[in-house]
Structure formats: C-alpha cells, structure tokens
Design a binder for these strands. Sequence first.
DNA 1: AGCAATACTTACCACATGGTAGAAATTCTG
DNA 2: CAGAATTTCTACCATGTGGTAAGTATTGCT
Lengths: 211, 211
Amino acid sequence: MSPYPGEEASRPTMTAEANRGYANGRARQREILEKAVALFGESGYRGTSLREIAARCGVSHPGLKYHFPTKEALLLAVLEQRDEDDSARMAADDPVGVEGLRRLVEIAALNADRRVVVDLFTSLAAEATTPDHPAHTFFAERYRKVIAATTAAYEHAREQGHLVAGVDPATAARQLLALMDGLQVQWLYDPATDMAGTLRAHIQRQLTVPL
Amino acid sequence: MSPYPGEEASRPTMTAEANRGYANGRARQREILEKAVALFGESGYRGTSLREIAARCGVSHPGLKYHFPTKEALLLAVLEQRDEDDSARMAADDPVGVEGLRRLVEIAALNADRRVVVDLFTSLAAEATTPDHPAHTFFAERYRKVIAATTAAYEHAREQGHLVAGVDPATAARQLLALMDGLQVQWLYDPATDMAGTLRAHIQRQLTVPL
DNA sequence: AGCAATACTTACCACATGGTAGAAATTCTG
DNA sequence: CAGAATTTCTACCATGTGGTAAGTATTGCT
C-alpha cells in the first residue's frame, strides 16, 4: 500500500512521524527528490517525464509512483522541500534591516554554486504563471511572502536611518527581488554574470551605510 | 508542395518575395503565428501542441504543418516575427543616452497591455536556458545584443554628464534588463504590479536629470 | 522461522504527441 | 473554362505520456 498521503499513524512502532517506512525507502525518496529537482530545472515540469526521473534513480516508473503517487504530488514535494531549505537559510533567524538585505546578497552568491536550484526556480516560476499550473499558488504565495519580508527589511533600515532619502521600501523590495530573478536568468545564459556583485551594487546605492 | 523554406522564387508572377502563395494562405500564416504566440506564452513551447494551435485557427494539424513544417520552425518564426516587431519599436531610430532609457520604460508601459507577448518571452526565456532548446541561441544572442545596446545608452548618458557618479554602464545595463525581466514575472503573478513606475524609479536614481 | 509492512517489477491501458502519405478542395492564371 | 499552383483534409504511424493492476522481492519485527 502506498504511504501517501500518510495521515493516520498506527503501524509498527509509531515513533516519529518523520521516519515512516524503512530506511531504504526514505533514502529512495530523497534520491527521487534530488533527481526531480535537477530534471524539473533542466526541462521544466511539463518537459520532464516520470520515466526519466525514475530512470535516473535506477527505478521503474511505477517504482517512483509508489513514493509519489502523482506527478503533481512530486512537484509539490520538490517545491516544499526546497522552500524549507531556503527558509532555513533566509528567514530562520529573522534577518531585519540592512542585515536582511545582506543576507539576500549572500544567497545570490551561494546560488552561483547551485545551478540546479536556480534552474528549478526560474523554470517553474515562469511556467507557473497560468493559474491552472499546479505550482501556481505556490509561487504566487511565495512572491507575496518574500516581497513582504523584504519590504519589512527596508522599513527597518529606514527606521535606523540607513536608507537614502526617497527610497520607498515597498518599491525597493519589488525592485530587489525582480533584479534577483532577472539576474538568475542572465546568469543561466552567461555564467560569467556576477549575480552577487550586481545585486550588491544596486543595494548599496540605496543605503547610507556600507553593506 | 510546401512553400517552406522557400528559397528559390520562380513560380507564377514572382513579384515581391514577401507575398508568395495566395492571399488566403498568407492570412492563415499570420493567424497561426498569432495563435502560436498566445499558446506558447500560456503553456510554453513544450507544453503546447500543434493540434491545439491548429484547432484555434480552425484548421487540422497537418493543415498547420503545411505552413510551418515543424514545431521548431513555427517557434523560430514566432520569435523572429516578435523580434522584428520589438526592434522596430526600440532600436529603429537608434535611441541613445537618456532617451534610450526612457524608451525602455515606454516599452514596459506598453507591455502592460500585451500580456501575451510578456507571457511569451518570460516563458520561453526561462525554458530555453538549456543549450539544446531550439530557442536557446535566439535568447542568448538577444541578451547579448540588448545588454550591449543598453550599455551604450548608459555610456552616452555618462558622456553627457547625465549619470550619477559611481554608476558603471555595463553593470547598470545588466541591472536594468534583469529588473525588467523580473518585474514582468511579478506582473504576471500580480497584475497590480507597476512595471513602468518601478522601472522609472530605478533609473531615476542613477540620473542627474529627470527622466 | 513466520509474518506483515514496505518497496519494488512487469505488463498493461487510454490517450496525446509530432510527423507523414495521399487524396480532395480551393484559388488563381491563361 | 481548363490546368496548374496552392491550400487543406482524412487516415495513418511510431513513440511517449501519466496512470493502473497484480504479482514479486525485500525488510524489519516478534
């Protein structure tokens, strides 16, 4: 029987709900997610087949469907996992003001070594603009949240007097995130693109203190 | 026989090479291109089927293939046509300096009424990051050219003393275009996004003169 | 060892895809 | 009107897709 969606817990040990199934299976799930990230990034959601992902894991495609019963379920699992990862990196210790902006530059710098992740988010974000795409609400929500958080960071910076006069926090937030997204695309086409540097230059122009 | 790729011209009247075939056929080609733009924008290249496009034109799918023998050929035709359109709007009268930057803001403003086009370019640009995608070289070239042109505009502005000290033309160009792309994605998710205004605010901060 | 939960496999299905063959309809030209 | 060029259709095909059914290994627990 499929462990999905895995609501009720009453089977063998019922210890933590995080590690149900055998270690074998959990490892396979991780592997599938990993390969799925890579392939969704390379070819998009629509351009990737379950058989392709399964093959990269050395599994038949129903073998994959045992862990993720649906292509859509796999997509959402991938997004959820990556989001947790990113949240842990960004919002975990509640970065406020200039420190929060610096954190964004750091993420950009890190991303230069994580092509798969950049590929995934740019591909899917562009693909999911139509409301019927399975990842649509995920990205709509994501933009809303990230813009809100960045706006807050700018507002905090302004309260500290770190912001140049005439910089509107909400506008600056939208600009910064748009810039980040756009730079990622440019970087995918030309790896010589300096994402972090270009980003830093932009932010610095809005601040009264060095970044 | 298929008119494609249509190199040699020796048939009936052989007047201009632009209007080969019957008026009927040329109209159909325009219609196909139009619907293809919309669908490639909505669902991406990989997510759109020839039958879908053909259906929207009230034509069977081999009927479509008569005009564009291959899905890839159709894609390239679409891109080529849109590129000509954009070039006519942007680079035609060689916009230099601040005027060139103003032109970009105008385009952004115009785009707010052309969702299909925005959809097309954001979808395809993200999809075509992998080198084997049929539109890859198109977009790689496009970024190269547009960045070069915008860099030139900034350089001209600097020579005129219109540029704030410390603004590097090449960096500013990359920033501006990344911003534009990123804002388009945000706008697709939230139509309330003010692309032109946000763009203008960004540029204004780099200039010593009003935009 | 015995047994149940877990993790897979092979074999299938209905459907959609891009592409092709060849015939029929349409349109223009002489 | 006749004939040629152009446009479009019906009928296929091979392939790939997500998904399902039912059986087989594998793993861990008692």
